[in-house]
Design a protein around this nucleic acid. Structure first.
Length: 382
DNA sequence: AAAATATGCAACCGCGACCGC
DNA sequence: AGCGGTCGCGGTTGCATATTT
């Protein structure tokens, strides 16, 4: 049961394939096609079972296979697809021409899974690990509550609302919220923005708001903008806190990440705010991973982000749009008039190029637009 | 330099689905 | 409907090589 009859036969070779065997199989299939796999080894003169021949052909000998290391784009796509499809390797492989399911599975198990963990992302759920811990705590709390006959007013309660669709300037954005009543009587509001549930592209401009230090003087650093409020101002203005913090966390996460991110912002009624955001950028270079991703530093700034090629980012395949050579953000490009020159490898270069076409152009103009958008988006949900 | 350990990859195995008889 | 053969998928193993101790 479940075992090939051919496997019972004796004298069948197992293990690694020799060059001679490869040649025999390749020659046979090139001339005759594989037809029924169980008859292939006999006809090709091989002491192998049909299953082994099939595997060798599919994973190694097929002429349309792409050789060599996976590109960054391919890795990003695998991560995105895995977030949607899980361990359905054959379906993932179908989106990557020239790559086999086995290859992708190996890459995932040996490399990508590890990188995600180092980035503070759970590779199974693609959620930030901290969020999962929170979820577990919530579950535990809920279970404890359920075990009791009644819920007293000073116990923690959690309410997760249905996701709501928002659309800002025609850019879809899915937002779900969670309200919490803490045992000290104060309430907090958590907000999740899940771009993976949107219909395909970012809600905002493709820019990195990676730091709170203004436009960076360092050409090797990511372009950096500062929110309109300082940290101290944020503390005195709840809306500003919300908007600025969300702006930081969401944009940093989204614009640095090729895959799913659920930034979480929690603002309690007593004015104390805390938030977190995962940062996938570290995937690009695991050695620069800094634990749990891009959390705000104590001084209210974010750590500098590693630079990502503008053109590469725009062309990152998204969901099923596996067309690396075609930008998937035409709307954003149209609106910003931004140059997506392949040779443009830094934000400063992008700005310089754009300024040649548009004298006086400033990236900060786009930033201000985004700030407005975030205000609208989160004004609707908070 | 040698042993131990980690890593990456190719291949195997078991199982379920499908098909034809 | 039952059975056997085949195919394809996903989990796992085992080996060669690289890295660390």
């Amino acid at each position: 049961m479940g075992r090939h009859s051919c496997c019972y036969k004796q004298k069948l070779r197992k293990g690694l394939w020799s060059p001679e065997e490869d040649e025999k199989l390749l020659n046979y299939i090139t001339k005759h096609g594989h037809g029924c796999w169980s008859s292939v080894p006999k006809l090709a003169g091989l002491q192998r079972c049909g299953k082994s021949c099939r595997l060798r052909w599919i994973n190694y000998l097929r002429p349309d296979l792409k050789r060599g290391a996976f590109s960054q784009q391919e890795e990003n796509l695998i991560i995105e697809l895995h977030a949607v499809l899980g361990n359905r390797w054959s379906q993932i492989a179908a989106q990557l021409p020239g790559r086999t399911d086995n290859e992708i599975k190996n890459l995932w198990n040996s490399c990508l899974k590890k990188r995600l963990r180092q980035s503070g992302i759970d590779p199974n759920t693609h959620k930030p690990l901290s969020e999962i811990e929170n979820d577990n705590e919530k579950t535990l709390t809920a279970n404890k509550s359920n075990q009791k006959a009644s819920v007293s007013s000073n116990e923690v309660m959690s309410l997760v609302m249905e996701p709501t669709k928002a659309s800002i300037d025609g850019y879809p954005l899915e937002v779900s919220t969670s309200s919490k009543i803490n045992n000290n009587g104060s309430s907090s509001h958590e907000l999740f923005l899940d771009r993976f549930n949107t219909t395909g592209y970012f809600s905002f401009q493709n820019m990195n708001y990676g730091s709170n230090i203004g436009i960076s003087e360092n050409p090797n650093a990511s372009i950096c903008f500062t929110p309109t409020s300082s940290s101290s101002q944020m503390m005195s203005d709840t809306n500003s806190v919300i908007n600025s913090n969300i702006l930081h966390s969401v944009t940093t996460s989204i614009f640095q990440t090729p895959t799913q991110v659920k930034p979480t912002v929690s603002v309690s009624s007593d004015g104390v705010h805390n938030w977190e955001a995962s940062n996938y950028n570290s995937i690009n270079n695991a050695s620069k991973t800094t634990g749990n991703g891009a959390n705000f530093l104590d001084n209210g700034t974010l750590p500098l982000q590693e630079e990502m090629k503008w053109s590469e980012y725009l062309n990152t395949p998204f969901l099923m749009q596996n067309q690396p050579s075609q930008s998937i953000y035409p709307e954003a490009k149209q609106e910003t008039g931004f140059i997506t020159d392949e040779s443009c490898t830094s934000w400063n270069q992008c700005q310089q190029q754009q300024q040649q076409q548009q004298p006086g152009f400033q990236l900060s103009d786009i930033y201000n637009k985004d700030l407005q958008r975030f205000s609208v988006a989160f004004g609707q949900t908070l």
